[in-house]
């Protein structure tokens, strides 16, 4: 390896830049090496290795934890694209374990049971990058202040219902537009209201975007869902249960990849949406007891 300069600022930059390379791509949840290969062949930009996809986590109930490192390694050996894995919110030792097995990205995720109901992980203490979920601008900027180098909407995982991802993406973007509209001397109060450092509010004020890449996640089940999130301003899409809970995972995965690339072309999305077989059986958020998006604010 070349001179690996690991001063924290440079490391943080490299980690944000990996997320930039994932833009316009689809990151797929996979539970086995076989699924990982299907995802890669279908054009996934990265895979998320986990033992159970969110829909099954919901069904099983109980405490849900980081996956077995052996299972994650099996997936790392199966594909050449980046491999991500989830740790529980606040569980910095699970994150240390994932860093030790050379994971490409850690998702500090509300899909798993939170390990800490107050503190998130100090992600600045890690060399490996983190992605975190957010429902609004305050959550997004707090995670970035803690060191997240990529943000995704929380949505409502494992439901196949895109409504929460839509509302989170709209809210984050509406709040960004609001911050842009403020006078410079109003940013201090805005930082107080959002409970975030003023420097990050200034960045949003100047650039009209988050300082890191922002993906959609949580409830994306169809090519049209994926294109909807892209048209709403997502820079890429996570698909969890939507693929391997559906009738024809390989075909649906390819179709979602195509829809993200051609998200402004309804003709192409129409063709991609034909004959996909059964979509995952959706559950409405009003029918479920556990709202994962309420975890980790």
């Amino acid at each position: 390896m070349a001179e690996t300069p690991q001063n924290p600022e440079e490391r943080a930059r490299l980690n944000r830049e990996l997320a930039q390379m994932l833009k316009g791509g689809v990151i797929m949840d996979v539970t086995t090496p076989e699924q990982a290969r299907i995802a890669e062949e279908a054009g996934a930009a990265a895979v998320m290795a986990l033992e159970r996809i969110p829909a099954d986590i919901r069904a099983a109930g109980g405490v849900s934890r980081m996956s077995d490192p052996k299972m994650i390694k099996g997936i790392q050996e199966a594909v050449s694209i980046p491999v991500m894995a989830k740790c529980r919110i606040g569980h910095f030792v699970e994150a240390q374990v994932l860093q030790a097995i050379d994971i490409d990205y850690i998702d500090e995720s509300e899909v798993l049971s939170p390990a800490d109901d107050v503190y998130h992980i100090d992600k600045t203490a890690f060399a490996v990058p983190f992605v975190c979920g957010a429902r609004n601008l305050g959550e997004a900027l707090r995670r970035i202040a803690e060191g997240a180098s990529m943000i995704r909407t929380k949505g409502e995982p494992g439901t196949g219902d895109v409504v929460q991802a839509v509302s989170h993406m709209r809210l984050i973007n509406a709040e960004i537009r609001h911050v842009q509209s403020l006078r410079a001397d109003e940013l201090f109060e805005e930082a107080k209201r959002l409970e975030v450092p003023v420097g990050l509010v200034r960045y949003v004020h100047q650039h009209g975007k988050l300082p890191v890449v922002n993906f959609a996640a949580g409830g994306v089940a169809t090519p049209a869902d994926a294109a909807l999130m892209m048209q709403l301003g997502a820079e890429g899409v996570f698909v969890g249960s939507g693929i391997f809970k559906s009738g024809n995972p390989a075909k649906r995965a390819r179709a979602i990849v195509g829809a993200v690339t051609n998200y402004r072309d309804p003709q192409v999305i129409a063709e991609l949406s034909e004959d996909l077989g059964e979509a995952m059986v959706g559950i409405n958020k009003d029918e479920i007891d556990l709202l994962m998006a309420e975890r980790g604010k």
Binding site: M1, A2, E3, T4, P5, E10, R13, L14, N15, E17, L18, M21, Q76, P82, V83, Q99, D102, I103, D104, Y105, A127, V128, P129
Partner: peptide, 27 residues
């Protein structure tokens, strides 16, 4: 060729006639 994300790095070098070219290597 440099491994996974932990192998990503930034350096600077000569590129043809250009000196001190910043070079960011991501996976």
């Amino acid at each position: 060729a440099y491994g996974r994300q932990l192998g990503s790095f930034h350096t600077e070098g000569q590129l043809g006639d250009l000196a001190h070219v910043p070079m960011t290597f991501i996976r």
